[in-house]
Simulated assay, not measured.
Amino acid sequence: MAEDRITQTPHTTVIERRGSNAGLVIGLAVLVVVCIAAYFLFAGTSSEVSKNNAISSAAKSVESTADKAGAAIDKNN
């Protein structure tokens, strides 16, 4: 009778774990929020510049009118 030879080999199970890409989604959301905040910040800054330019223009107009009034008063004296 021949002897039966039984060889037991262990099986290795490989489990690959992958991330759910939540970090990528959160990173993109933060980037979008930063871009929107920067847009409104720069839009507000340009609004302030426009307002300052308008005030400067009005002040120059008042100065010009005052100079004309002063010249007219000097001319009549």
Score class of each variant (00 low, 15 high):
residue 32 V to S: 08
residue 19 G to L: 04
residue 74 D to K: 09
residue 28 L to M: 08
residue 65 T to P: 00
residue 49 V to I: 14
residue 49 V to P: 00
residue 47 S to G: 04
residue 75 K to N: 06
residue 70 G to T: 05
residue 17 R to K: 15
residue 2 A to G: 05
residue 18 R to W: 03
residue 24 L to R: 10
residue 71 A to S: 07
residue 32 V to P: 06
residue 11 H to D: 02
residue 17 R to I: 07
residue 34 V to A: 10
residue 22 A to W: 02
residue 31 L to M: 12
residue 34 V to F: 05
residue 34 V to D: 07
residue 76 N to G: 02
residue 73 I to E: 09
residue 30 V to T: 04
residue 16 E to R: 15
residue 22 A to Q: 06
residue 12 T to Q: 14
residue 59 A to N: 15
residue 68 K to Y: 08
residue 43 A to P: 06
residue 8 Q to W: 10
residue 76 N to R: 10
residue 31 L to T: 05
residue 65 T to I: 01
residue 6 I to F: 02
residue 14 V to P: 03
residue 14 V to C: 02
residue 47 S to Y: 03
residue 31 L to I: 00
residue 9 T to I: 02
residue 61 S to R: 13
residue 25 V to P: 05
residue 20 S to L: 13
residue 11 H to W: 13
residue 1 M to D: 01
residue 36 I to T: 04
residue 40 F to P: 06
residue 22 A to C: 07
residue 67 D to K: 10
residue 41 L to S: 13
residue 11 H to L: 12
residue 45 T to N: 09
residue 35 C to P: 04
residue 31 L to H: 10
residue 13 T to G: 10
residue 16 E to G: 02
residue 59 A to H: 11
residue 60 K to H: 12
residue 24 L to K: 11
residue 46 S to H: 07
residue 75 K to I: 01
residue 27 G to S: 03
residue 18 R to I: 07
residue 61 S to T: 05
residue 70 G to I: 03
residue 7 T to S: 11
residue 64 S to I: 09
residue 18 R to Y: 04
residue 75 K to W: 01
residue 55 I to D: 04
residue 39 Y to Q: 11
residue 53 N to E: 07
residue 23 G to W: 01
residue 8 Q to A: 11
residue 25 V to E: 09
residue 70 G to M: 10
residue 35 C to I: 01
residue 4 D to R: 15
residue 22 A to M: 03
residue 28 L to K: 05
residue 24 L to G: 04
residue 50 S to W: 13
residue 62 V to C: 06
residue 69 A to M: 09
residue 17 R to W: 02
residue 38 A to H: 06
residue 66 A to G: 00
residue 1 M to V: 11
residue 72 A to M: 06
residue 67 D to Q: 14
residue 49 V to T: 07
residue 56 S to T: 02
residue 32 V to N: 05
residue 67 D to V: 08
residue 72 A to E: 08
residue 37 A to H: 12
residue 25 V to F: 12
residue 25 V to W: 11
residue 75 K to L: 06
residue 55 I to P: 02
residue 36 I to A: 14
residue 7 T to A: 05
residue 37 A to G: 06
residue 39 Y to C: 11
residue 40 F to Y: 09
residue 65 T to C: 06
residue 69 A to G: 00
residue 29 A to E: 01
residue 16 E to A: 09
residue 5 R to F: 00
residue 48 E to Q: 09
residue 73 I to Y: 03
residue 53 N to I: 01
residue 73 I to G: 01
residue 1 M to T: 05
residue 3 E to P: 04
residue 54 A to Q: 12
residue 26 I to P: 01
residue 61 S to A: 09
residue 8 Q to C: 05
residue 4 D to T: 13
residue 70 G to K: 11
residue 10 P to R: 15
residue 23 G to A: 03
residue 65 T to W: 12
residue 18 R to L: 05
residue 4 D to H: 10
residue 25 V to D: 04
residue 66 A to V: 01
residue 13 T to F: 14
residue 68 K to V: 01
residue 3 E to H: 05
residue 57 S to K: 15
residue 42 F to K: 14
residue 16 E to K: 15
residue 76 N to Q: 14
residue 55 I to V: 06
residue 38 A to F: 02
residue 52 N to G: 01
residue 20 S to A: 11
residue 31 L to Y: 07
residue 71 A to N: 08
residue 27 G to H: 01
residue 73 I to T: 09
residue 42 F to D: 03
residue 8 Q to N: 10
